[in-house]
Every structure is written in structure tokens, then in C-alpha cells.
């Protein structure tokens, strides 16, 4: 079992478990929020073009989802998400998984990694917040 350790993201007013990931064969890293409250992984709608996906494809289905931000339509696409090492190289991937792309103005600006990955793909997730200083907190992912 491998363990990937990431610093807890403390740059905003609220510390967040935000990690950098890569998608499919694209070389650009994107920030993604680890959200144990999310049933499934969600991408902002504007990532569609960026990743070369299209909602009109026959393989794409739609679903409704809700949260604090209200309800929205989601389009289900298939892709791979990679976790990175300290040198930004991909070291692990989810395999092809179904994720939702938010439709319309959903207010989602970041990739949200939900329990389909956290519980379905990872063996364990530990947020180490022992220190009083959030800058010393870390996210440990067991794969």
C-alpha cells in the first residue's frame, strides 16, 4: 500500500484539503477539493471544452444533483484522474470513472473529488490536524 502525503491548503481564509491533480492525458495540473460530503466527483462546466468533452455525445447521460448551492443538472462523462508526487509527476490514477460536469451556472469553480473516489478508489484518507497551526496539517491518501 502506498501513501501520498500532501500539504493542507492554507492560503485562503479557510484551510481546505485542496490537491493538484492531472486529468486524462493533459499535462496541466488542476486544483481539486477533497470533499467527503460529495456523493460523486464533479467538474465545473467550463472544463468541458478544456478537456475536449461534449455534452451532445451519445455516451453522455444527465442527472440532477443538489447541495448548499441549490440544484443543478449534471452531465456524466468518463475520464481518468491522476494523483501527483512531489515533483508533479502522475503516480496513481483512478482508472476510467464516471464524473459529473455541472451544467449552466452552477457556481462550481473547482473540481470536487467525491466519495466515489475517496471511498471507492482510495483505501484510506487521513487529515492530520494535530498541530495548532494549519500550515502543519497534511492530507494522507492511502492507495
Amino acid at each position: 500500500m502506498d501513501i501520498l502525503t500532501y500539504p493542507f491548503d492554507c492560503y485562503g481564509a479557510i484551510p481546505r484539503p485542496l490537491i493538484l491533480v492531472k486529468i486524462d492525458n493533459y499535462s496541466n495540473p488542476y486544483p481539486a477539493l477533497i470533499d467527503t460530503g460529495a456523493d460523486f466527483t464533479v467538474f465545473p462546466g467550463h472544463f468541458l471544452d478544456e478537456l475536449g468533452h461534449c455534452n451532445k455525445s451519445r455516451k453522455v447521460t444527465s442527472a440532477k444533483a443538489g447541495g448548499f448551492g441549490g440544484k443543478a443538472h449534471y452531465f456524466i462523462h468518463t475520464l481518468k484522474i491522476f494523483l501527483l508526487d512531489g515533483n508533479l509527476n502522475p503516480v496513481w490514477d483512478t482508472g476510467k470513472i464516471k464524473v459529473g460536469f455541472a451544467g449552466g451556472n452552477s457556481g462550481i469553480d473547482s473540481i470536487v473529488l467525491g466519495r466515489d473516489i475517496i471511498c471507492g478508489k482510495w483505501r484510506r484518507l487521513i487529515i492530520n490536524s494535530e498541530s495548532n497551526n494549519p500550515k502543519n496539517w497534511s492530507v494522507r491518501i492511502f492507495i
Binding site: L33, D35, G37, A38, D39, F40, V42, A63, K64, A65, G66, G67, F68, G69, K71, G100, D109, S110, V112, G114
Partner: peptide
């Protein structure tokens, strides 16, 4: 910003 998305 809050996450928390649930399938309806």
C-alpha cells in the same frame, strides 16, 4: 464556497 453535492 462549500462543496457537498448529492445525487437527487
Amino acid at each position: 464556497y462549500h462543496g457537498y453535492f448529492n445525487l437527487s
